[in-house]
């Protein structure tokens, strides 16, 4: 494999006195699908948001496609165009129709013409199976449909990598499948993907690698079979047992470093 598509070196991030990331090193190769799992407050979403600099890292470097985003002289807006991001809360633009949601960023950011933007929008809506909702407003769509539109909106910019921040966590359980199906399709097409998720089935079946984070550090990094199937660390085992079989968990003392910080 050539140069990694996403490369994170010695990444630290603090919010005030709260050190959320304490030295992260991570490489994601071209076409690789990496799922990041871990308890809430472990820093996994912050890590994802640092990759496209939605959060400014306190220390460390982030490279995407060989370009150092943490270089203060880099054109961050230009760099972000090549990194798609999908949010937990969809964040579609509510004042625009589905097609406009896809077309406006292309026109304003990439300078594409009206016709081309409309064509690319239609193509990507078809990919996520929502061509018939082209003229609808986001508020009339289900959560699952909104999230698929959000994915299509990111794809319409022609990204070289996609970041997913708990894309199914805000969805009703019966709507999760449609979104995961779109993500699986993307993975099969060879998209480089970094996915923060609690969907263990997706991680097991689709991911090339699973990264387990806890307390702002990467605890375990390997194939799904290694990390989910045969975790080496006690913390990973503990987390997985709680996630896979929540009814069996026992009441425990809260430790202060686990409280707060859901990002």
């Amino acid at each position: 494999m050539s140069r990694p598509e996403i490369e994170v070196r010695g990444l630290h991030k603090s919010f005030g006195d709260n050190e959320v990331l304490r030295g992260i090193d991570l490489e994601i190769g071209q076409g690789e699908v990496v799922c990041v799992i871990g308890p809430s407050g472990s820093g996994k979403s912050t890590l994802l948001r640092c990759v496209n600099l939605l959060e400014e890292p306190t220390r460390g470097q982030v490279f995407v496609g060989g370009v150092e985003l943490t270089d203060p002289d880099v054109d961050i807006d230009a760099a972000r165009r090549r990194i798609g991001m999908v949010f937990q809360q969809f964040n579609l633009f509510p004042h625009l129709t589905v097609t406009e949601n896809l077309a406006l960023p292309q026109r304003r950011v990439l300078g594409r013409g009206k016709a081309e933007a409309a064509r690319v929008a239609a193509e990507n809506l078809e990919r996520v199976g929502l061509s018939e909702k082209a003229t609808a407003y986001p508020s009339s769509l289900s959560g699952g449909q909104q999230q698929r539109v959000a994915i299509a909106r990111a794809l319409a910019m022609g990204p070289r990598a996609m970041l997913f921040d708990e894309p199914t966590s805000a969805l009703d359980p019966e709507l999760v499948g449609d979104v995961l199906a779109v993500m699986r399709m993307l993975a099969n097409e060879g998209m480089t993907m970094m996915v923060v998720t609690h969907e263990m089935t997706f991680a097991r079946e689709v991911a090339d690698r699973v990264v387990f984070m806890d307390g702002g550090l990467i605890v375990e990094d390997g194939t799904p079979a290694q990390v989910i199937g045969a975790p080496r660390h006690e913390r990973t085992r503990h987390f997985l047992s709680r996630l896979l079989d929540p009814a069996m968990a026992e009441v425990e003392e809260e430790t202060s470093d686990q409280v707060g910080g859901g990002t």
Binding site: D77, R81, I83, F87, N91, F93, P105, A150, R153, M157
Partner: peptide, 12 residues
């Protein structure tokens, strides 16, 4: 989230 979505799409 609206600003974050716009920024992540490359809007200045």
């Amino acid at each position: 989230g609206q600003l974050e979505a716009a920024r992540s799409l490359g809007f200045s």
